[in-house]
Amino acid sequence: MSGFEIWGDVDRYRSAGEESDEHLWGKVELDRRRKDKRKPWFEGEYRFEKKVADRVPDCFVRGEGLNRWIEFVAGSDQPYRAKTREALRLGFVVHWVFHTDHREQMHDVREALEPELEGPIRFGEYDPLNGLLTVGDPVTFKNYEFPVESMREFEPRSLLGYRHGAAHIARQEYSYDLGMFDLAGCQRRIFTDYPQGKYFRAVAPGQAFDTATFGFPTEDGLERLVEDEQVTRLGPVRRRDAAE
């Protein structure tokens, strides 16, 4: 016996695999708070166990100007770093929420995200027995440095899921908008003309697309910067639409 009850039609909250009642409760309670407008709740559309590119978050919320990705942890191992980076790349801030019986996993997520995680951050907690639910502070581009680790970051076909891939990336005069980056201390929005990531353009903040030189930076030059750990993603891939 779990010691608590989950009532109502809960099938839409369930994951595809085996799931504990403790994990399921977090999603159900989050939606109850939305309906009752009790904290924590957010303006926007809530979707549970729905695919975003190649990931299936426990819940994501599409809101006005801010999208949230919420993950509940109740003992199972999680790819904390990979999920966090993917969510940020896709334009979400990330809330990690832990069952109070598994607070030790807060150390695991902090360890996985350091040293890129900057400053103090409070992760969320939940406890079905006591009706506790907080979502804590989100991981964002403001408190998490996103180092670029390979040239796949500049391949549209490798981003936003293998099925749709580049089809969801915004384009400017047929060039894919890969988002804003720091290149050895210089901020530029990077575009590429091909799904496999060739022939780049770098546009300075506030400048028009046609001010960029075609073929600069070169692929070799960009790859050297990545190898030298001189490239950081500063914002998400610019998406053509927000609908899934």
Rank of each mutant, 00 (worst) to 15 (best):
residue 92 F to Q: 06
residue 184 A to L: 06
residue 208 A to G: 12
residue 90 L to Q: 10
residue 179 G to C: 08
residue 72 F to H: 09
residue 83 K to Q: 12
residue 56 V to Y: 13
residue 104 E to Q: 13
residue 138 P to T: 05
residue 72 F to K: 07
residue 91 G to K: 10
residue 157 R to M: 09
residue 223 E to W: 00
residue 232 T to G: 00
residue 202 A to K: 04
residue 187 Q to D: 14
residue 241 D to S: 15
residue 241 D to F: 15
residue 123 F to I: 02
residue 180 M to S: 12
residue 111 E to M: 07
residue 95 H to G: 06
residue 48 F to T: 02
residue 69 W to D: 00
residue 82 A to D: 14
residue 188 R to V: 05
residue 31 D to W: 14
residue 123 F to R: 02
residue 67 N to I: 00
residue 71 E to I: 01
residue 82 A to M: 02
residue 20 S to F: 00
residue 22 E to T: 12
residue 216 F to I: 08
residue 70 I to P: 06
residue 176 Y to P: 01
residue 138 P to Q: 10
residue 234 L to E: 06
residue 146 F to K: 00
residue 104 E to S: 13
residue 64 E to H: 11
residue 103 R to I: 15
residue 150 S to M: 05
residue 28 V to P: 07
residue 128 P to V: 03
residue 118 E to H: 06
residue 165 G to Q: 08
residue 2 S to P: 03
residue 167 A to F: 09
residue 10 V to R: 06
residue 81 R to Y: 10
residue 16 A to Y: 06
residue 84 T to K: 02
residue 91 G to V: 10
residue 212 A to P: 03
residue 6 I to S: 05
residue 111 E to Y: 11
residue 177 D to T: 05
residue 163 R to K: 15
residue 122 R to C: 01
residue 232 T to K: 10
residue 200 F to T: 00
residue 140 T to V: 08
residue 198 K to T: 14
residue 227 E to D: 12
residue 181 F to N: 03
residue 44 G to K: 04
residue 93 V to E: 15
residue 189 R to T: 03
residue 171 R to F: 02
residue 39 K to H: 13
residue 111 E to P: 00
residue 74 A to Q: 10
residue 136 G to V: 05
residue 199 Y to D: 10
residue 47 R to P: 00
residue 99 H to S: 13
